[in-house]
């Protein structure tokens, strides 16, 4: 709406009230929240079989592990979680700020979907709200002068959908891939005229930790099949240069479905300004088996 010239100032609000759904059988909230989201699966062929966001993303993860059995090692996953847990402590809005998560604790936590991921590798369905202000050139500078904060420009955006149905070749969703993430990031890079090497901060929709690793590979930060290079080849900060999920991600920041990726954009802007960095990549995923991907390249401007 802003880039199209229709409006020069857009106020965008996202909110989530997920935990109002309470499961009277287990006397807890989570199972019913998960169930409510599961209503979006194919009602004839999938829903009755127990399809959920967790088991469908697990299908993506396990089919990746079918192709790359030596990748996504538990020790690496544990270390990424430890780093994100530490980073969440610097985010005043993170919902799991006070927890200490170590690779050992990840290893010992119970399976949620076996053998794809464990409890401490899953995001937290939660409640929250976020607001972003989109402003056109000219208006943005005025706001920034008033606030004393530099603008952050959207340099590139990309979105992609994959087919809903899985199969052995296109036009089906392919096992072992999150092509929507790949295509969305590619489009965003091309529009911004940058590549993964230019990105300083990534705020990534980490629904489940192994999916974070696959998405980082799909977006070009590490080769497919070598997602563990994030730690083993010191790509990811603090071992390397790329700051991944400084907000703590959805796992520690909280996944309030109606506004999580806005929260990611808020964090990316914050880190670009706080640390004086140039480029950030914000990523979002969705649909039943990660068939939808969105990406935006942000660039820090000057007042």
């Amino acid at each position: 709406m802003v880039a199209g010239g229709r409006y020069d100032l857009v106020f965008c609000v996202g909110a989530e009230k997920a935990t109002d759904t309470y499961d009277f059988m287990s006397e807890t909230q989570t199972p019913e929240v998960v169930q409510t989201i599961a209503w979006s699966w194919d009602p004839l062929f999938e829903r009755d079989q127990g399809a959920t966001a967790a088991d469908s993303y697990a299908e993506v993860i396990l089919s990746y592990m079918d192709q790359y059995p030596s990748d996504l090692k538990m020790a690496v996953r544990g270390e990424i979680l430890r780093i994100m847990c530490e980073q969440a402590k610097n985010n005043p809005n993170a919902q799991r700020r006070d927890e200490i998560v170590t690779p050992e604790r990840v290893e010992h936590s119970p399976w949620i979907i076996e053998p794809a991921f464990k409890k401490l590798e899953t995001c937290v369905y939660t409640e929250g709200a976020c607001c972003l202000i989109f402003a056109a050139e000219g208006v943005a500078e005025e706001i920034c002068k008033d606030s004393g904060q530099p603008p952050v420009w959207i340099e590139g955006v990309g979105f992609a959908n994959e087919p809903y149905w899985w199969g052995i070749k296109h036009p089906h969703k392919l096992p072992g891939r999150i092509e929507s993430d790949h295509l969305a990031a590619k489009a965003a890079y091309e529009m911004a005229g940058v590549g993964p090497k230019d990105i300083n901060v990534v705020e990534l929709h980490d629904a489940f930790l192994p999916q974070l690793e696959i998405t980082m590979a799909e977006m070009g930060f590490v080769p497919m099949g070598h997602a563990d290079d994030l730690i083993e080849k010191k790509i990811m900060a603090p071992h390397g240069k790329v700051l991944v999920n400084p907000s703590g991600g959805l796992i520690y920041g909280g996944h309030f479905v109606g506004g999580s990726n806005m929260f990611s954009a808020w964090s990316a802007r914050r880190e670009l300004i706080r640390r004086g960095l140039d480029y950030a990549l914000v990523h979002g995923t969705g649909a039943s088996s990660a068939q939808y991907g969105g990406a935006a390249v942000l660039k820090r401007g000057v007042i």
């Binding site: 499961d23 059988m25 287990s26 199972p31 019913e32 998960v34 169930q35 599961a38 079989q49 127990g50 399809a51 959920t52 967790a54 088991d55 697990a58 299908e59 396990l62 089919s63 592990m65 079918d66 119970p110 399976w111 949620i112 979907i113 076996e114 053998p115 794809a116 409890k119 899985w166 199969g167 052995i168 096992p175 072992g176």
Partner: peptide, 27 residues
């Protein structure tokens, strides 16, 4: 099997009594 099917250990409210259960895709 097209891929390794996931085994749901922690299930949602409707399916909790069936856990652990598996769901996959067959060609």
């Amino acid at each position: 099997m097209l891929g390794t099917p996931p085994i749901t250990v922690f299930a949602n409210a409707r399916f909790a009594r069936y856990a652990p259960f598996g769901r996959g895709r067959v060609i």
